[in-house]
């Protein structure tokens, strides 16, 4: 377990602590290279690329955008709800959200 954690600490964007999940989504959904993916997400969030790995910037912004935070915030979106907000924010489709919409239609 130490090895992946070492990579995350050395090179990672730290997932939902900052905006790593969002950048990864753009690489995977639109095949964007790292520079393009960061630029795309930064533009959608209205921040600088460097802010995407900044926990101080992203903690507040994630809560504001309601796209999921690690700490407990009463009533904040989690799971599918957070991902539905990410879909709108990044202008992308997420399979689990599509499934959820189908299930409640």
């Amino acid at each position: 377990m130490g090895m992946p954690i070492s990579h995350i600490m050395a090179s990672g964007m730290t997932g939902i602590r900052a905006a790593g999940d969002l950048v990864a989504r753009m690489e995977f959904s639109k095949k964007m290279r790292i520079g393009e993916a960061k630029e795309y997400v930064a533009k959608k969030l209205g921040v600088e690329s460097m802010d995407l790995s900044d926990e101080h910037v992203m903690r507040e912004l994630r809560e504001e955008l309601d796209i999921g935070v690690i700490t407990s915030v009463a009533g904040a979106a989690k799971g599918i709800a957070a991902k539905m907000n990410i879909e709108k924010l990044l202008d992308t489709k997420i399979n689990s959200c599509d499934l959820f919409r189908k299930q409640i239609a």
Binding site: M9, A10, S11, G12, M13, G20, A24, M50, S53
Partner: peptide
Amino acid sequence: TVSVEQGMEVPVTH
């Protein structure tokens, strides 16, 4: 330990 320069971070897929 060492780490990348700030701003150069990349997604780590697990």
